[in-house]
Every structure is written in structure tokens, then in C-alpha cells.
Design a protein around this nucleic acid. Structure first.
Lengths: 150, 150
DNA sequence: CAGAGATGTTCAGCATGCTGAGCGAAATCG
DNA sequence: CGATTTCGCTCAGCATGCTGAACATCTCTG
């Protein structure tokens, strides 16, 4: 290795590149979403709920996150009035989560998928190519981490 | 949008792709580093310190992280004996951080930069292309977040 | 040289992530 | 039909991230 490991990102391990890039995008995106009491995690959940109510486990699976993590994200969303949670009547273990009107309004104002892409901006020359690489990566590593699931 | 926002990663926002990919890689890498009481954050700092002692601020800047975050990462590294911290004699505000022998040994056993790349494996077909995109992204977004710094 | 400002670190508190453990509700099986 | 197992969620505690505030130490200026 060089005398002092350089600050040049092109020398970083891929994992560090990923983490740093993700953090930078989250930061910019959160700054925008903060106006409505949202953040990147909550926004994604809210967005997913526009397709109809879901159980917490379904949301956790979809977001590739542990149940416990989703539980707290939803607690925050509920605290801000973006979401309502109700015990399922058909299976009382489950909690049915739905967007509220407040949540729908926040979502509409904060922006659609386009707005999320805008924070990335023109930072990367060939965005589709980058996305393709990330998709392949997520697909592969997800399958390795949760083998049994489809 | 579709009736129910799909689980297909290729439809995700780029930010979500990045966060998920980063989390998956961190998880795999941490699982490996855990054997030596390390994780991805600590490993990167340790690696950087092989170039010689640094102040906490220098490390924070290099890792693109706030001073407070670096402070706690170092506290953990110190607690595990990987690093030693000493008040600088020339400027008593600063704390000089150095790798210990324990840290150097852990680093040697846990692996070099190659080992970090191995967790990514063959998940992505064109890794150099992906890295190039990430480097461009980090460079651009970093400059936007900390404009004054080189 | 004294007061004002800049610098480097830490403390407190919040967020999402993780793991491990607990607990009620449902499903399964002898 | 009762006992065991599985399922869905929450609690507790740790990790890295962030912000805002406090603090001691330098530096710069009048």
C-alpha cells in the first residue's frame, strides 16, 4: 500500500464506495423529506402502501429489513400521522398498516419517484449502467442472505 | 405508478438501490470482521492508520464522516485494544490516534483490500464500470455537501 | 496582552440498522 | 382436544450515522 492510504475514492474498496454514496444520497434526500417529517426509510414505506394496506412483515420483507426495524419505522410514521396501524381481525397476530390522508398528502407534496432521482442528479454519467450493476448486486446478495425466499 | 409498487429491484429509486446494496455488503463484511471484534467502519479506520498516526478530525474528514461519529468509532476501537489515543503535545486540543500491535495483527489476519472485494464476489458482471459510476457519484455529492474542502 | 474568534473533541439525543429474547395468537400434530 | 411448534410483533441493547450544544485549547486581533 502507499505511504498514506489516499483520499482518492477510486482507491477505496467497493463496499466503502457503496456505503459512502448511499449515505450522501440519503442525506440529500432526507433534507428534502424533512419538510414533511419524513425520511428515506419512511418515504419508501409510504410509497409502498399506496398499493394498499400491508402487514408489517410484508413491508419488512419488501424493504429487505428485519421485522424489528420495520416496527420502529412504522412507529415513527404513526407518531407523525402518516400511517395508521390496526390489529388484523382475521389473524390477530398481524398488524395492518395503511396510509392516512396526511400521509398521502405528504407523499404527493414531497414528490414521486422522479423527485427521488433528482437528488442523484447528473452526478454519474451513465446512470442506467450504474443502476443495472446495483440491481445485479442486490439480487445476488439478497439471494445469498435470504436463500429460502423467492 | 403500478397498482402495487413491485418488489423488483429494477423499479427501485437509485437511492434505495444504493442503500440496500451498501447494507448487504456491510452485513457480509461485518460477519467476517466480527471474528476480530471489528466491523466495516473500524476496519477502514485501522487500515488508514497503517500510514501513520492521525488526529481524529483527519480521520473523520478522510472517512467523510462527522467528528462525533469518528469519536465513537475510535472509542470502540480503543475499547477493543485495536487503537491507542493520546493527547497531542504540540496541540492539546488534538488526539493522536495510532494502531496498536493488536490492531495490526487483527488487520493482517482479517485481510487486505483484496478480502474486502471478495464479499462483493461475482455479484456484478462489470465491476470496474460500477466502481467508476460510484466514484463519480461520491466525488460529485461530496463536493456538493462540503464545498469549501478540497 | 486581553478579549474574541476558530478549532478539536466530547456529550446528549434522535434516526435506522442489527441481534437476541420474550409473548400472545394461530396452526399443527399426536 | 390438548401439547408443541410456528408465526407476527415488541422490547432491550448494541452499532454507525446525524444534529445541536458544551468545553478546553489555540490563534488572531485590537
Amino acid at each position: 500500500m502507499a505511504d498514506r492510504p489516499a483520499d482518492d475514492p477510486s482507491t477505496w474498496a467497493t463496499g466503502r464506495l457503496l456505503s459512502t454514496a448511499a449515505r450522501l444520497v440519503e442525506h440529500a434526500w432526507d433534507a428534502h423529506l424533512g419538510q414533511w417529517g419524513l425520511n428515506h426509510a419512511g418515504f419508501a414505506v409510504l410509497w409502498m402502501l399506496t398499493g394498499g394496506p400491508r402487514s408489517q412483515r410484508e413491508l419488512a420483507r419488501a424493504m429487505q429489513v428485519e421485522d424489528q426495524t420495520m416496527s420502529r419505522v412504522l412507529e415513527r410514521l404513526e407518531r407523525h400521522g402518516h400511517v395508521s396501524r390496526a390489529r388484523s381481525t382475521v389473524d390477530r397476530r398481524r398488524v395492518e398498516v395503511s396510509v392516512t390522508d396526511v400521509g398521502r398528502t405528504a407523499l404527493a407534496e414531497a414528490g414521486d419517484g422522479q423527485a427521488a432521482e433528482r437528488v442523484v442528479g447528473d452526478a454519474v454519467p451513465d446512470l442506467p449502467q450504474l443502476r443495472a450493476g446495483l440491481v445485479a448486486m442486490v439480487t445476488d446478495l439478497s439471494a445469498r442472505r435470504w436463500p429460502e425466499e423467492g
